[in-house]
């Protein structure tokens, strides 16, 4: 059963690493334009849920429906293609390719998706400017501050106009001020493009940028929306 109008729905996800269960019957759904915070203590399975939802890993059982397609039934190549075209990603750190300039980093998903270099870089520059880091375009990630780098990463996640953005502790390595700015820019941009955001965080102030939250505990996700 798919909730009406939902973009991405997971049902009864199970995933174990070795004998340790990371997900133990997790449910999840998100609508277009919605920002959902995935919260929970460390090791509760937040990131595993995100990875399953994004098709990065395949759950041991359960389904992940994106539109009418079940990610858990798709091949690695198909899931990769879907991630390239429909999903965007922001991680805590270590995500920018150190040799590429910031602009090239932002253009990377577009280019992986087959967009010509010139066009990809033009579009990327717009996003860099929208995230207030247009001036670092020719710099390499090692030469910019953490806040700038994270904005570049957000720009990269948004540049390909994804329908779902997966953000795993996107402000984890930033101070409050930079964290807030990044969250503001990320959520505004996502709402502006009607993209859904799956936001994994353990910080309540970051979760406060969401529309609702899901708490993962012991590998089970609880929807809190009904209580709001």
């Amino acid at each position: 059963m798919t909730p009406a109008g939902s973009l991405l729905t997971a049902r009864a996800l199970h995933k174990a690493y070795g004998s340790t269960p990371a997900l133990d019957g997790a449910d999840f759904s998100i609508h277009p334009g919605e920002v959902v915070a995935v919260m929970g203590p460390s090791g509760s399975g937040k990131s595993t849920l995100l990875h399953c939802l994004a098709g990065i890993i395949r759950p041991d059982s359960g389904s992940v429906l994106y539109g009418s397609r079940d990610l858990s039934q798709m091949s690695d190549a198909q899931r990769s293609a879907l991630r390239r075209s429909d999903f965007g990603f922001v991680f805590q750190f270590g995500q920018l390719v150190p040799e590429l300039t910031c602009l090239e980093n932002v253009a990377l998903p577009l280019r992986l998706n087959g967009v010509k270099r010139k066009e990809a870089e033009e579009r990327s520059l717009e996003w860099l400017e929208r995230l207030e880091v247009g001036e670092v375009r020719a710099k390499r990630p090692g030469e910019v501050s953490g806040g700038q780098g994270q904005r570049v990463a957000v720009a990269r996640a948004l540049a390909a106009r994804p329908r779902v953005i997966f953000a795993d502790e996107p402000t984890g390595a930033l101070d409050s001020l930079n964290g807030e700015r990044v969250m503001t820019l990320l959520t505004e941009a996502a709402r502006g493009t009607n993209a859904a955001v799956v936001l994994v965080t353990h910080e309540a102030r970051v979760a406060a940028y969401s529309d609702r939250e899901v708490v993962v505990r012991d590998g089970q996700a609880r929807e809190m929306a009904g209580l709001a």
Partner: peptide
């Protein structure tokens, strides 16, 4: 008790969301 705490958390977050919105 867990549900009690979860409910409280939701309420806290609801308030925080409102404050975040107002701040924005």
């Amino acid at each position: 008790a867990a549900e009690l705490l979860d409910t409280q958390r939701t309420e806290h977050l609801r308030l925080m969301r409102g404050l975040t919105e107002r701040k924005r």
